[in-house]
């Protein structure tokens, strides 16, 4: 208990946070999909903050081109599975945190099986097919989704499928990623990080902001980005926040049953 108090003393001391918020973090279960540029800082800060149970999903191994931004990994980790290294580092950082690792590429079946046991899902992936799949699963299974994505020098953060505190669902449904972008772009429409490049610190900034949203959602402290999209430009220091609204087109394009979700080919959707 003494270690617990000492470890979290700086945040327990915070006015409006206290032991009550810390207890909520301890009891929370968060799934982070993607242990790359966004996932590394998200995992580090959630573990440091004391989120009780963290799921880590990634099927990739560490390569040299990851090291400019994926700060959980070092040269000695090249070729090893990211989830294995991430779990080791989390335990070294905070052995009060329980981890579950998923070494497969995230798919529909994993979503249906595992989303129900988590409180919050975090999208830290690097491709549109995963992003649409995760979004649709969160809508079907009614899970809050903390979204983050980067492009060159800019990043986006949002909280989907969650009403702002104090707002009731009877006053309108929460928005999701498809309300913002109903259809995925084709693979040649948007350059990914490998093609377009990304400033190494940028996913750090965006990932830390996603972790902040997760901590606020769990603890109930502050206002989240529910129903809003925040865009950050690292070159200009410009933060731009937009209020999101429901999009009629989104509903018609989204699978509305588990069966139709399972049958959707997300790879093809984005190619």
């Amino acid at each position: 208990m003494k270690e617990f108090i000492l470890r979290y003393q700086r945040q327990i001391t915070l006015e409006g946070f206290g032991m009550e918020a810390q207890d909520k973090l301890t009891k929370a279960k968060v799934l982070v999909i993607g242990a790359g540029g966004l996932g590394c800082p998200i995992l580090q800060y959630l573990a440091a903050a004391g989120v009780g149970h963290i799921g880590i999903a990634d099927n990739d191994t560490v390569s040299y081109s990851n090291l400019n931004r994926q700060i959980f990994f070092g040269q000695e980790d090249i070729g090893k599975f990211k989830v294995d290294i991430a779990a080791l580092r989390i335990h070294a950082l905070n052995n009060l945190v329980k981890t579950t690792i998923y070494k497969q590429r995230w798919d529909q079946a994993l979503s249906i099986e595992h989303f129900p046991s988590y409180d919050i899902i975090v999208d830290a992936t690097d491709n549109f097919s995963s992003r649409y799949l995760i979004n649709d699963a969160c809508v079907l299974l009614d899970k809050p989704l903390v979204f983050g994505a980067v492009s060159k020098y800019e990043g986006q953060i949002a909280v989907f499928n969650k009403m702002q505190d104090g707002q009731q669902k009877s006053n309108g449904l929460p928005v999701n990623y498809r309300d913002l972008f109903p259809e995925p772009p084709k693979s040649d429409e948007v350059l990914n990080c490998a093609e377009g490049g990304v400033l190494g610190v940028l996913p750090g900034t965006i990932g830390v902001m996603q972790a902040t949203e997760v901590i606020k959602l769990i603890s109930g402290v502050g206002e989240t980005l529910a129903n809003q999209l925040l865009t950050y430009n690292a070159l200009t220091n410009n933060f731009f926040k937009v209020q999101l609204i429901k999009n009629d087109k989104a509903n018609s394009l989204m699978p509305n049953t588990i069966d139709s979700f399972m049958q959707t080919n997300y790879e093809q959707l984005c190619n």
Binding site: T125, A149, F181
Partner: peptide, 21 residues
Amino acid sequence: LDNEVIPENAKLALMPPFSGG
């Protein structure tokens, strides 16, 4: 929305989806 009338001095933002992570 498409049918919205743009007021004077408005600021419009065109935002694409980002995929990277």
